[in-house]
Structure formats: structure tokens, C-alpha cells
């Protein structure tokens, strides 16, 4: 077999793998585009019949459910927690990368360990603490809870990025008369911009996916986030599958955009144990 033929054979194999792996996403989209009469069948068509495709389920889910409110709540929580986590973690990651004191090594290990805490456990003290602090049923409370999850791993991610920048940069800046803080602000941070972007996107994906805090620390329906809203369909007497899949598709679009922006960083430099919630 020629090298060319082998490449195309590999391509066919890879395309097949991707098709099988993405079938759930495909099925979600197909379901959202078909009326219930077609979808609720013991032999649903694997390819949507062209004449039946409609956006009725999207129209229905937006008119019957406060999807826009959920999206707004999620967006506010994601924006707030990502900004706060990123600011805190950039400073801490820089410190861990550049200054090595024994205490800081211990701090790094502690940060790493906090990644192991189950969300369904840590939410219990959060519930008690937030009740005392009147943070239950507030978006601020959700932001704070997401920061607790975001800071530890984002700090490690940023430390990894700063480690790739040579120390000579600050030394050169010092010779030019920069204070250490000025060197960080004017020299290092601009160079770390790709790292900041990747870390921010990653934080945003995790916060958008977050469920257990939003489900527990918020009881008012008008403060629900997207994940809580989606989950509220489940367990209803008759699940409206096309509407639920339509809402699911809407919730996925921002994730996929963010993911495609993040993906180059994922495979190249980012896998030093930092990735995943």
C-alpha cells in the first residue's frame, strides 16, 4: 500500500471514530429539530426527514421556559467567578513559579490537594456558611463557590505557563530600572497572554458546567443557572424531549466555541496534570 493510500485509510478510520463518538451530540441536534410526532417513535429515523425539520422546539422552549434567564444567570456567574479566579491565580501562579520558599512548596501541594474534594461534600459547609452570611439565593454566593473550585487549579495552570517564560526577562527588566511589580505588569503579563486566555477559557467551561452548587445554594427559580434549568426537565411526568434537547443544544454552543479556542493549548503544553476540574 502506498503511503498516500495509507493516509487516506487512516483518515477514513479517524472520521469513522469521530462519527461514532459524536453520535450523542448529533442525536441531540436531530431530536431538537424534529416534531414530537416523529421523535417519539419506536423506530426513529437516523437521518432527519428533510420536510419535517423545524425550529419549533427551540421556539417552544424559549417561550415556555425561562431559558434566557438561565443563560443570563450562568453568564453572570461564569464572568464573575472567572475574572476573580483568574486575577487571584495569576498572582499566585507567578509567585509559585518565580520564588521558591519551602512554605510556598507546601502551599502548592495544598492547592493541588484541594482539587480532590468532592463537590457534593464541600457544598454542605458552603450551605451552612452561606446561610449564616446571607449568601443563599444570590448570584454572588455562586460566584464565591466557583472561585473556591477555580483558584486551586487555575493557580497551577498559570504556574505552568510562567515556568515556560525565562527568568532572564525580569533580570533584563530590572537592569532597565523596573521594580519587580512593574516587570510583572509590563513584561511578563503581556507574554503570558496566551496562558491567561487558555486559563480563562478553561475556568469558564468549568463554571458553565457547574451543577451541584447552583442546585443547592440557590432555591429561587429565577436564579437558576443553565445546568439546573436543564435538570429540572428530568423527572417530570412527560419529558418534552425535543424541547429539552433544544435547550441542551443552546447550552452547548458557547462551550463548543470556547473549546475550539482552547483546544490547541490542551494538547501542546497544558497537560502537566493541571487540566480537568
Amino acid at each position: 500500500m502506498s503511503a498516500r493510500a495509507r493516509r487516506w485509510l487512516l483518515f477514513a478510520l479517524a472520521a469513522l471514530v469521530v462519527a461514532v463518538v459524536l453520535f450523542p451530540v448529533y442525536w441531540m441536534v436531530v431530536t431538537s429539530l424534529l416534531p414530537s410526532s416523529v421523535v417519539l417513535s419506536r423506530h426513529p429515523p437516523l437521518l432527519p426527514p428533510p420536510g419535517q425539520v423545524s425550529f419549533a422546539a427551540f421556539a417552544e422552549v424559549f417561550s415556555r421556559r425561562p431559558v434566557l434567564t438561565w443563560i443570563l444567570n450562568s453568564t453572570l456567574v461564569v464572568a464573575g467567578s472567572t475574572a476573580v479566579s483568574l486575577a487571584i491565580s495569576t498572582l499566585a501562579g507567578y509567585s509559585l513559579s518565580r520564588f521558591h520558599t519551602p512554605a510556598q512548596k507546601a502551599a502548592g501541594a495544598a492547592l493541588l490537594l484541594t482539587k480532590m474534594l468532592p463537590g457534593s461534600l464541600i457544598v454542605i459547609p458552603f450551605f451552612v456558611m452561606f446561610t449564616t452570611a446571607h449568601l443563599i439565593d444570590t448570584r454572588l454566593g455562586l460566584i464565591v463557590a466557583n472561585v473556591a473550585v477555580g483558584v486551586p487549579f487555575a493557580t497551577w495552570m498559570m504556574k505552568g505557563f510562567f515556568d515556560t517564560l525565562p527568568r532572564e526577562l525580569e533580570q533584563a527588566a530590572a537592569i532597565d530600572g523596573c521594580t519587580p511589580l512593574q516587570a510583572l505588569w509590563h513584561v511578563i503579563l503581556p507574554l503570558a497572554r496566551p496562558g491567561l486566555a487558555a486559563c480563562g477559557i478553561y475556568l469558564a467551561i468549568v463554571a458553565w458546567s457547574e451543577f451541584v452548587f447552583a442546585r443547592t445554594l440557590v432555591t429561587k427559580a429565577d436564579l437558576w443557572t443553565v445546568t439546573v434549568g436543564l435538570q429540572s426537565f428530568v423527572g417530570e411526568y412527560l419529558v418534552d424531549w425535543p424541547a429539552l434537547m433544544a435547550a441542551g443544544v443552546v447550552s452547548l454552543v458557547p462551550m463548543f466555541v470556547l473549546f475550539l479556542l482552547l483546544e490547541p493549548f490542551l494538547v501542546s503544553g497544558l497537560t502537566s496534570g493541571a487540566v480537568k476540574q
Binding site: 479517524a14 471514530v17 469521530v18 463518538v21 459524536l22 450523542p24 451530540v25 442525536w27 441531540m28 431530536t31 421523535v39 417519539l40 417513535s41 419506536r42 426513529p44 467551561i205 458553565w208 458546567s209 451543577f211 443553565v226 445546568t227 436543564l230 435538570q231 426537565f233 428530568v234 419529558v239 424531549w241 429539552l244 434537547m245 441542551g248 447550552s251 452547548l252 462551550m255 463548543f256 470556547l258 473549546f259 475550539l260 482552547l262 483546544e263 490542551l266 494538547v267
Partner: peptide, 27 residues
């Protein structure tokens, strides 16, 4: 490769409801 890795970015709740639908008893 980007497409292959997409499931990583799907929120757990969304994964869950999608499989709930695909593995529904009747439909």
C-alpha cells in the same frame, strides 16, 4: 482531533440528559 475531544467540554448534566434520552425504554 478537535471534534474527537469535544465531549470533554460538554457539561455533565447535558451528557446525562442526552444519554437519558438515547437510552429511553420506548423511544
Amino acid at each position: 482531533r478537535s471534534l474527537l475531544l469535544l465531549p470533554w467540554a460538554v457539561p455533565g448534566v447535558v451528557v446525562s440528559i442526552t444519554f437519558l434520552w438515547m437510552l429511553d425504554a420506548s423511544y
